[in-house]
Structures are given as structure tokens and as C-alpha cells.
Design a protein around this nucleic acid. Sequence first.
DNA 1: AACGCAGGTATAACAGCGTCATGAAACCGT
DNA 2: ACGGTTTCATGACGCTGTTATACCTGCGTT
Lengths: 210, 210
Amino acid sequence: MEDEPDDDDPRRRALVEVAAQVLAEDGPHGLSLRKVAAQAGGSTQLVYTLFGGKPGLVDALYSEGFRRLAIAQQRALQAAPPPGDPARILALGHAYRGFAQTEPSFFSVMFGRAVPGFTPARSTRAASRQSTFGVLVQTVRECLDAGTLRAPDAADLARLCWATVHGLTSLEQSGLLGTDDVEAFVAAALCVPVDAHRPPGQPGAGAASL
Amino acid sequence: MEDEPDDDDPRRRALVEVAAQVLAEDGPHGLSLRKVAAQAGGSTQLVYTLFGGKPGLVDALYSEGFRRLAIAQQRALQAAPPPGDPARILALGHAYRGFAQTEPSFFSVMFGRAVPGFTPARSTRAASRQSTFGVLVQTVRECLDAGTLRAPDAADLARLCWATVHGLTSLEQSGLLGTDDVEAFVAAALCVPVDAHRPPGQPGAGAASL
DNA sequence: AACGCAGGTATAACAGCGTCATGAAACCGT
DNA sequence: ACGGTTTCATGACGCTGTTATACCTGCGTT
């Protein structure tokens, strides 16, 4: 009766690690159960006993992607100014874009329906969302509390920041943003959703970032 | 030697229409050559003679998606205030979101790597982009010329608007935006990238839209 | 210690996929 | 009317996810 994921099962973690490597190397299209199983030294049945099938494995990969994104967020915040500075929000945005560029296959699995039949489980989606979006909300809230940003609701502003950064990143990855000087444009654009809510008289985070 | 797409070939257009129907009904995962061929009353070879393979067919579907999006844009602008009013930009945003909700499978093909091996051809991507993004740039430029909006560059502001709307739409479709009252939030958020660049003293397009 | 039962694993098969080679049929210019 | 070219349908190949079957391993009982 006990069929909870049991995420600490070392065999599960090992298989997810192998699958993550295959995903990173061969892309979402090359992620096949036979390749993962072979590279893990077993048979495809392994995936079925541990994950119930490919969707289960991809679900674990989905979580793993958000876990890595959360790590990138954490590192970005550690290298950023202390809490209350809107530059921290920009740092999160750059970390987001950097993650998409470093792990485009993970990004596609998380946001782009890259694996044909897969839709993340509701609980997985909620948990993954919370682990990364919560950090952004907290960062925004610190700015509101410090008075360096003004907005009616922290979560709403965080949502808007996320959407802007995600849209820029997603369009850039799709090659639709326009090829001329993408880097500079994105760097400048990332300042807008923050500056738009900054009370006047404060120095902006500046377009000199990135 | 003549192997240009010849987009007016009625057989091509018919097959694209059938494929579009299969895509809309069964999703990107259910889009198989055998099903398209059967529904068109032929064999899979048809796709190879007309499109050179599945990527070619999907490439045509990609263009078709942007063509439909352009139509939605056109209709939205016809029902919007005359040129120069920033509300036209909002109307385009709502049309974009409406398209994503009406044709989610097309949206996934266009922006989300929904078909495993497919990447749009460079020329297809450029043409598709121009046909829809050009409209937005033009609409923004009219606002800049009318003085109802102020920004250093029309294309840059248009890019930012697109990214914001696309991010909101994409995250909403992925179920990651947050389930509580998505509609109202999106409606309000769509006003921000416009209001942020509006010279003070002008009445905003208001959050009462949508 | 030996047995029996349960669970996990590997093998092999099945249906479906995109793709391509083969033969037949149709079309078209000469 | 004929010869050449192009197109079409059929079937096969290798791949995919999934599943049934047989084996084998390990644990609890007697």
C-alpha cells in the first residue's frame, strides 16, 4: 500500500541522475528508457518498478530541474547585495536566464512540453513552483519592506517579474526575440519591471548590470 | 531543380489543414503522419512528396499558427480604438492570450518544442516573427508618434511588451502562474508595461479592460 | 537447514512511430 | 502513341513506450 515516491531511495536518485545526464547530452528527443536503462546498467523494467513508467521518470526530472534552478537562485542571491536592494531581483532574473542557457533541455522539459505525453503531476507542479517562486516573492517582499520598491502586493509584483523574465528567456531561446544584440537588450529590459515600481528619486539599478 | 515550397499548391494547403485539425484535436503527441495521411485519404508518402518529411509538415504548421495569430491580431485591432491609443497594445496582448487559450496545441508548437525533433527553419522563423511582431511594433510606433507613450525605441518597447505578455501566457498555460484569480491578475498586469512608459498626467488604459 | 512465497529483474513480444526502398500507376512532353 | 519522369501505395526497418512471462533472488516460516 506504500507507494509514495520515497525520494530518498538511492536507486531512484541514481536513475534520475543518469536520466538528467542523458537529457542534457541528447536533448528531450533523445531521452529514451532504453538509453537511460542501458547507461544505468539495467533494463527498462527498472524505470517501471521505480517510477511506474516514463511519465514518472520525467516527473522526477521536472522536479530535479526546479531543484537546480533553486540552487542557481541561491547562488545568485549570495553574490548579490544585502536584502532590500532591488538588485537582488535583477540577480534572480539573470540567474533564471543563465539557467535556461546552461540547461536548455531542462528548461524545455519544465516550461516547453518537450516530452510528448508528459504533464507534471499537480503536486509536483505546486511543489516545484513554490521552491523557486517563493524565493522571488520573499526577495520582492524585502524590497517592499525596505521601501526601495512600492507595490500593492508582493506576490503580484513577483509574478509580473517572473513573467517578464520568463517571456524574455523563452522568446530568446526560441530565436524569436530578434538576433541583433539580444544580450544588451535583455540586460536593459530586466531593469524595467523593477524600475517601473521604484519610487522616484532613487537611483535605478542601472542598465550597466550583467 | 525547382523545390521551392510552392505554398499555393492546393494539395499542400489541404494537407496542412488536415494536420491542423489533427493537431487541434489530438494535441502535438497525437500528430502522426499515419493519422494525417489516413484522414486525408492517402498514405504517409504523401507527406514526403509534399513536405519532405514530418519536420517539413510541422514547419508548415508552424507558419500556419503564426498566420492564425496574425488574423487574431488584425481582428483585435479592428475592434480597438483608433491608432495612437495605447489600448490597442493591450488589445493585442489580450488577442495573444486568447489565441493561446483557443489553440493551445498551436501555441506549443510555435513556442514550446512540442514536436520532438522539430526546429523551425531559419527563414520560416523570421517570416513568422515578422508577420506578427511587425504589427505590434507598428502599433507601438503609432503611440510614440501620437505622444501617448514615450520610449527611446519602438521596437525595444514592443519586444518588452511581447515578452511580458508571452511570459504571462506561457506560465499560465503551464499552470505555474498561481491558480487564484489568474484572469484578473493577467488583465491588470497587461496594463503595466504600457503604463510604465506613459507620460504622467494621461489617464491609463485602466485595469477595467478585458 | 530447508522450504515457500513474494518482489524485483531481464527477456521478449506488441503496437505505434518516422523513414525509406520497391514496384505499380499515372501523367506529360515529344 | 510511346518513353521517361514523377507520384503513389505497400511493406519493411529500426526505434519508441509498454506489458506479459519466466527466472531468480531474498526473506520469513517451519
